[in-house]
Design a binder for these strands. Structure first.
Length: 383
RNA sequence: CGGGAUGUAGCGCAGCUUGGUUAGCGCGCCUGGUUUGGGACCAGGAAGUCGCCAGUUCAAAUCUGGCCAUCCCGACCA
């Protein structure tokens, strides 16, 4: 992919509205664009990162045996009246009346919908345990959206729900999720994430743990939360199963949420310097950035083409800065958008058959241009 | 919702106190030229319903009122 066609617009200026580093950097590097208070669009560069996070979550969820599905965003309001959570969530729920005078909700979470679904489909102990999850947009009319993508009215959430015969089964799934969560956060460059016991709030249930990181401001701004719900929802929606003796028992539930956008913001909070973002290899929008400092020379252009092809053959995602900007602008933009590996092609080095490989986190080597791909692969393996 | 602040070109801002030329500056953008290893230079150019509506006035970015939007502090959350 070529920079000039990538819809990347960097900015030197710090947006006045952004107070914390991740928000500033996400705007300056054009990962996101604010549409309205608490509402953000992901631009091409940001969407690449979002998709990386989604894929990591998907892999770790699948490892636990969880099955992915996609529930509806539109929900009938009556299902919320049934669990009496319509009053509890109050104005956070975004609702409207459709043309048939039916009251509808833009889903803020999905315990009601999934419990109702499972109540209709699961009847026997033979079908348990079961874990279902989805990665989906949620809507909450927050009182005060803030910190960019950290608290918004429209956000991407991974929500998983476990269904067990008894407390022992729930305890097992709960532990499985703890491990999956720790894997997800550490793979996303957030190994500093702490787990601690928390208040269950509007979810109800018996026990919950939240996964938090601390911002430079000292603020705490929660990445995930897992809950032992027990039978609260299964009793309301009649989610029962027949046990080995044929007796009807309520399914024991747990639910497990991750703020996908918060992972991105959290990752930037923990991985940046005064120049910009320092992406971990796991979340970077592109694996390698090729920076020809002078892209007019034909020999350099054709070398870049062949290098691009070779890297693609190695399944790498590559961005080429094909702009006719000065070296300073290209290098500073490279630091801002934070791609971990850069191949810098300068005239003098190139004349001697050499190019430079530089790491965003620090360190550079000058190597023979024929050996670049080999070196890059070596660095990736070691990381 | 309560308290505080802001709204002027894509971004960052000055101008408003004390109303009065064609509304400015920096960055960015376009054209031509010179540059090219850490945010270059010269010349030319485009881009504004001064948040919106009303009022006062010969005259409003500037004064008055209402509305809207955004941000910060509090309760809430992934």
């Amino acid at each position: 992919m070529f920079y000039s066609k990538s819809f990347i617009f960097t900015s030197k200026e710090i947006p006045a509205e952004a107070k914390i580093a991740s928000h500033q950097l996400m705007l300056r590097s054009s990962l996101i664009k604010k549409i309205s208070s608490g509402v953000y669009a992901y631009l091409p560069l940001g969407l690449r990162v979002l998709n990386k996070v989604r894929e990591i979550i998907r892999e770790e969820m699948n490892k636990t045996g969880a099955k992915e599905l996609s529930l509806s965003v539109l929900q009938p309001l009556f299902i919320w009246k049934k669990s009496k959570r319509d009053a509890l969530l109050g104005k956070v729920i975004i609702s409207f009346t459709n043309r048939h005078k039916k009251q509808m909700v833009l889903g803020p979470t999905h315990e009601e919908i999934i419990t109702d679904l499972v109540a209709q489909r699961i009847n026997s102990y033979k079908n348990l345990p079961l874990i279902l999850y989805q990665i989906q947009t949620k809507f909450r009319d927050e009182i005060r959206p803030r910190y960019g993508v950290i608290r918004t009215c429209e956000f991407t959430m991974k929500d998983a729900y476990s269904f067990d015969k008894d407390d022992a089964g729930l305890a097992q799934n709960y532990e499985k999720m703890k491990i999956a969560y720790q894997n997800i956060f550490s793979r996303c460059g957030l190994s500093h994430c702490e787990m601690k016991e928390a208040d269950s709030g509007i979810m109800g249930g018996r026990l919950s743990h939240e996964f938090v990181i601390y911002l430079s401001s000292g603020e705490e701004i929660e990445l995930g939360h897992i809950f032992k719900l027990g039978t609260k929802y299964s009793e309301v929606f009649g989610a029962n199963y027949s046990d080995e003796q044929g007796r009807q028992r309520p399914i024991v539930m747990g639910c497990y949420g991750i703020g996908v956008d918060r992972i991105i913001a959290g990752c930037i909070e923990k991985n940046h310097d005064e120049k910009g973002i320092i992406w971990p290899f796991s979340l970077t929008p592109y694996d390698v950035l090729i920076i020809p400092l002078d892209y007019r020379e034909k020999r350099i252009v054709s070398y870049v083409d062949s290098l691009l092809q070779e890297l693609r053959n190695q399944k790498m995602e590559v961005l080429v800065d094909d702009r006719s900007e000065s070296a300073g602008i290209k290098l500073n933009d490279a630091d801002l958008i934070g791609i971990p590996l850069r191949i810098v092609i300068g005239k003098k080095n190139f004349a001697q058959g050499k190019v430079e490989i530089s790491l965003r986190r620090g360190g550079r080597i000058v190597c023979n241009k024929a050996k670049v791909v080999e070196k890059v692969l070596g660095i990736l393996k070691g990381s």
